[in-house]
Amino acid sequence: MAHPPPEARHRIAIAVRAAAAILGGYLMANLVVVVVQRAMPESGTDASRLGAMLGFILFAVVAIWAFSARSTWAAVTGIALPALLLTLVLLVLPGGGA
């Protein structure tokens, strides 16, 4: 297996990475949808669909990152920072400020 003992530390690390992958990935996917919706306000359903497709891909990328980053710390920050960035983009885009 990729990660040798000590068992307990290993398990906690896996749990943190899994949480980062699932929660972070889902958050990012949703953020992308909103960003695309804001960026293409006249496109309606199309924006949602495009955002959703990008969101699925982004979720996968986030999950892959979460489990491949060198350290647990890097895994978490590597997701949290881009999520923060997306939130900032959202605030800057017209129609934002929510």
Binding site: N30, V33, V34, S48, A52, M53, F56
Partner: peptide
């Protein structure tokens, strides 16, 4: 798999779509 996800779009993004 990808089209399966897209078909579930309204289920999986209830907060934003």
């Amino acid at each position: 798999t990808f089209s399966g996800l897209v078909l579930f779009l309204y289920t999986l993004y209830p907060f934003v779509i």
